[in-house]
Design a protein around this nucleic acid. Structure first.
Lengths: 224, 224
DNA sequence: GTTTTACCTGAGAAAAAGCTGAGAAGAAAC
DNA sequence: GTTTCTTCTCAGCTTTTTCTCAGGTAAAAC
């Protein structure tokens, strides 16, 4: 399946050029000429990347970005600006754009940035964490131990991911609390114990051997 | 092994100050005065974090960042800018810097950001302490003498670590009590003797030769 | 050789740390 | 509006760790 790029611009010259150029480079391309057309197309057929002009009819590129991010859409966005307006650039980043390009630009320059964004995004999207017979797919958010699949709540998921990124390392309670709950000090709460309990019942069900060990007075480890 | 910070600036005043300050805070510090020196040093001995001035001879901080990121290096970068230039800031983030600080800055402020970046990246390096045939892994918290593994309680662990950091050196009872128990004076307690005993039974089990010797009237030594 | 001092060690009390079931409060889905 | 899911707190319980005590042993002093 080809990587799909949505190009949003109201100038037919620009869109035509980008369509030909990106198609030639092996991408499948669709075009939108206005802000709300961009949103509609994104909902109908989510692209892998959006090239988005700032100056658009109906909704500006900034507004499109803002709405997509508000809806939780993480698609990489490459913004195009007519002039090198620092204010626009800053605002764009604030809204959640991932990169910028100033018009006029050389098509090769756009290609470099498109590739960089896709690489960055794919690396994150398709990461699967593994240790022993445990797998955690960061894309689908599914977990399994051997053939047994199980689902995790958001916090359980983050916690397991943290352990899977540092197998065999003892993670101190302090580090875990800080990474997962953002707590800088250890209060009187015992959330951590509770969530370790939750994770164990899911991770070590059906009499499977222990994977999360407690290191008394320090924290916990993931190990065989 | 200490966390390693590379400071890149062409002003000897700044680098000298940062070297002393960061060294005092427990980091190992190296200095580069130009952009390509920074790249060379990073390749030779990858640091855990880079403090990078924007204005540099040969290659600017922005270019250094760009090249490192292009090479797939994910090391956290803290940028220093002479003035609060929004354009520089945006460009810096675009290139892949992780945080920035406007000169002049208070050293404490830098420290806060350095710590935050290191924590975020979890670039905490653990060392393995060794003496004779004893190993103590600070990351996994596993101890072994030769092939025999054993586990230690938190206090036993701290005590053994203290000895392993100063092999062959006599540690006075006063120093040990202060380091491990935070006691400033020697009360009527005999915790120290008890814990030396615990450590010996674990460290010198199965007829292995003595490693912790008592120096009567003074304290204890770790030696062969 | 005896006394004194410092240290060792077994037993067990006290304290700390961690586990788990029950359930309240809030958020999200229906 | 109701139901479900998620997060978090609380309280009782279990386990481990820490520390004290008391009697014993070894080294130094006399």
């Amino acid at each position: 399946m080809k990587t799909h790029v949505l190009v949003v611009d109201d100038d037919p010259g620009t869109t035509g050029m980008l369509r030909r150029f990106l198609a030639y480079e092996g991408y499948s391309v669709s075009i939108a000429a206005s802000g709300d057309e961009a949103l509609t197309r994104t909902l109908e057929h989510p692209p892998d990347l959006i090239v988005l002009d700032i100056l658009l009819p109906t909704l500006s590129g900034l507004e499109v970005t803002q709405r997509l991010r508000a809806a939780g859409d993480q698609v990489p966005i490459l913004m195009l600006t007519a002039r090198d307006s620092v204010a626009d650039r800053v605002e764009g980043f604030e809204m959640g754009a991932d990169d910028y390009l100033v018009k006029p630009f050389a098509p090769e320059e756009l290609l470099v940035r498109v590739k960089a964004l896709l690489r960055r995004n794919q690396a994150i999207r398709y990461e699967v964490l593994r240790y022993a017979d445990v797998e955690l797919d960061m894309g689908t958010r599914l977990a399994n131990r051997g053939t047994r699949k199980f689902v995790l709540s958001p916090t359980e998921f983050d916690l397991l991911a943290l352990f899977l990124r540092r197998p065999r390392q003892v993670l101190t309670r302090e580090i875990i609390l800080n990474c997962i709950w953002g707590l800088d000090f250890e209060g009187s709460s015992n959330v951590l114990e509770v969530y370790i309990g939750y994770l164990r019942t899911k991770l070590e069900a059906e009499g499977e051997p222990r994977l999360i060990y407690t290191v008394r007075g320090i924290g916990y480890v993931l190990k065989e």
